[in-house]
Computed example of a mutant assay.
Amino acid sequence: MKDIQEQQWVEAAQSGDQAAFESLVHLYEKRVLALTGRMCRNPEDAAEAAQEAFLAAWQGLASFRGESSFSTWLYRLASNACVDLLRREGRRRAAAGPSLNDEELNLDVADPAPSPQEAAERRELRQQIETGLQSLSPEHRQVLILREMHQLSYDEIAQVLQLDIGTVKSRISRGRKQLRNFLLCSGNFSVPAASKEAGREG
């Protein structure tokens, strides 16, 4: 039912119905802000990128043909807005969520009841992840955020960013390796015993 309502709003908005577009904004604004917030880190930049994404969506609705879902298309606009903003202002910063939830990095920080020492260690790890992400290019940070924080599949990321899947996998692999190396050098990450297998894409 939700998908039907969304499609009706999209079709109405394409015909110039501003109220229908506002309904789409309300439906997706939190998710878009979550994405831009992690890409930009600075709340003002995140809000600006989100605003640019919704403006681009309104202006580009006439050319939206539904080849991908509306949400995928909107993610693409938001992600591109973030990269454009970062490039314009020369900012190479990023924000990490509660964890990367990445089996390759072997980061397990999701225990619901940590001890004070464990909580302090996790805060330090998150800070190190954030610092490590700062060193990545916007393109590498972009794919890691979509993959690890928003849990998009490789195919979905390829659609969002309009890249071939080989490029997506390559960027994710390189980004993970760079981040892992940073954590190794900072002393906040130890290589598991089966690390020889970690380089393989699953």
Rank of each mutant, 00 (worst) to 15 (best):
D102M: 00
D164S: 07
L77C: 05
L85Q: 08
A34Q: 12
Y154A: 12
R171D: 04
M1V: 13
A198S: 07
H26T: 12
K177S: 12
L136I: 04
S173M: 06
Q59I: 01
A113S: 10
A53C: 05
L105E: 02
Y75M: 13
E11Q: 07
M1L: 07
A20M: 11
R38V: 01
K196D: 13
E6P: 03
Q117E: 13
E139A: 06
M149N: 05
C40R: 06
I165G: 02
Q151I: 03
V109N: 10
A119T: 09
L179V: 06
I145L: 06
R200I: 12
I145N: 10
R174D: 01
A194Y: 12
T72G: 05
L161M: 11
L74T: 08
D111V: 15
R41N: 12
D111A: 10
I145A: 07
F64I: 02
A78L: 01
Q159D: 11
S137W: 09
E156P: 01
R200K: 12
L77F: 01
H150L: 14
S69L: 07
L107K: 03
V25D: 15
E148Y: 03
G66A: 14
R122G: 05
R91D: 04
D102K: 00
A120M: 11
L184W: 02
N106C: 07
F54I: 06
D108G: 09
E139D: 08
C185T: 15
S99G: 10
G175R: 02
F70S: 02
S173K: 11
K2L: 08
H150Y: 11
L152R: 09
G199R: 01
L74R: 06
H150R: 12
L100T: 01
R126P: 01
Q162M: 15
S153E: 15
A194F: 15
A110D: 06
R38N: 10
G199A: 09
D102R: 00
L161F: 00
Q142W: 00
Q5K: 06
